[in-house]
Design a protein around this nucleic acid. Structure first.
Length: 320
DNA sequence: AGATGATCCTGAGCGC
DNA sequence: TGCGCTCAGGATCATC
């Protein structure tokens, strides 16, 4: 289940193996994986073939690769910097959903069972010449879209690809690892909402990159209940839950982020972290690592929530 | 308009 | 051996 740390691992792998390379051809064995590309398969291919991936950017769980037109002078260089006249205005966007993988492989490798999209890359040294999107449950997908300036972009960096965001991801908030993450702004939004804390953490428009697993882990670490009403949050409460989320995410990144040099840019790099380091998620009936009370599982939002009934006391005015 | 719930999708696991 | 059921969950859409 890729959340922010896994997506960041994939981003680093793509930066290493795909950035600066030109896409020569595109095959879409299963169009369902590009259903968010409204204009269809031929338009998808037309946008990509001949374009060069200039960099790889992530916010929350969205990944995108700004595209430069290779016919422009200076494009396709190692740096990906095609000059001020060629700031990318479109990007290939990838969301891994539940089960998506991006693999950099030789075209001779046998096709994976759930292979959905193949991008052929022009040769560069001995590097593999195919980028594959593999997805079992097809919650994820690829599409090409235009880039717009971020609503809250910081002065001084205008024009850089880092200040541009795909239209379809423009609504999501910055994630807790983003240097420009605004804790005070989040705090005010939480105060003005009438909902439960976990539901707010999973709302990507408030803060991005937190999924069901890390929400439960952050809540456990911060000793807060998932149904804590957000309009009762005081400033130290907001700091505590965000610091906990950032810590959990950073530790997962440390555990899973070391193998991105592998040719297989996949989402399994952090699976070892899940097995070893989860304190609450998936541990129903096991003792809380802090106090020994049995971890319980509750269902809401069509999802499971794992928590310690002692460390994370349910508030009287609980909100789901 | 904010809050809440349904929906998409496939394979693993399980009881019978 | 196989059927039918439940579960997993990010993002989006529908409904109050």
């Amino acid at each position: 289940m890729p959340e922010l740390p896994e997506v960041e691992v994939v981003r680093r792998g793509l930066e290493r193996w795909v950035a600066g390379r030109r896409i020569s051809s595109v095959a879409v064995p299963d169009p369902r994986s590009i259903r968010r590309h409204a204009l269809g398969v031929e338009d998808f291919r037309g946008n990509l073939e001949g374009a060069t991936v200039s960099s790889v950017v992530r916010r929350g769980k969205f990944l995108w690769m700004p595209l430069s037109d290779s016919s422009l002078p200076g494009a396709g260089t190692d740096s990906g910097d095609a000059g001020p006249e060629a700031v990318p205005h479109t990007a290939l966007v990838a969301h891994l959903g539940m089960s998506g993988q991006l693999l950099v492989e030789s075209p001779e490798q046998p096709h994976e069972k759930h292979l959905k999209v193949r991008l052929s890359l022009e040769p560069r040294g001995d590097e593999p010449e195919e980028l594959r999107f593999v997805d079992q449950r097809i919650f994820g997908g690829l599409f090409v879209t235009s880039l717009q300036p971020t609503a809250d972009h910081m002065p001084g960096g205008a024009g850089s690809a880092w200040d541009l965001i795909p239209d379809e991801a423009a609504h999501i908030g910055r994630d807790p690892l983003d240097p420009h993450f605004d804790l005070e702004a989040l705090h005010q939004k939480l105060r003005s909402r009438k909902t439960g804390l976990k539901r707010a953490l999973l709302d990507q428009s408030l803060v991005s990159g937190i999924g069901n697993i890390y929400a439960d882990e952050a809540l456990w670490a911060a000793r807060m209940h998932y149904a804590r009403p957000t309009d009762t949050m005081r400033r130290p409460d907001t700091e505590r839950i965000i610091h906990a989320a950032r810590d959990v995410i950073a530790r997962a990144l440390d555990a899973g982020g070391t193998s991105f040099d592998s040719l297989y840019v996949n989402v399994n790099g952090a699976s070892g972290y899940f097995a070893r380091s989860l304190n609450a998620y998936g541990r129903e009936g096991e003792p809380c690592p802090r106090c020994g009370t049995m971890i319980r599982r509750d269902t809401f939002m069509n999802r499971s929530s794992y928590s310690c009934p002692v460390c994370q006391m349910k508030p009287r005015n609980a909100r789901m």
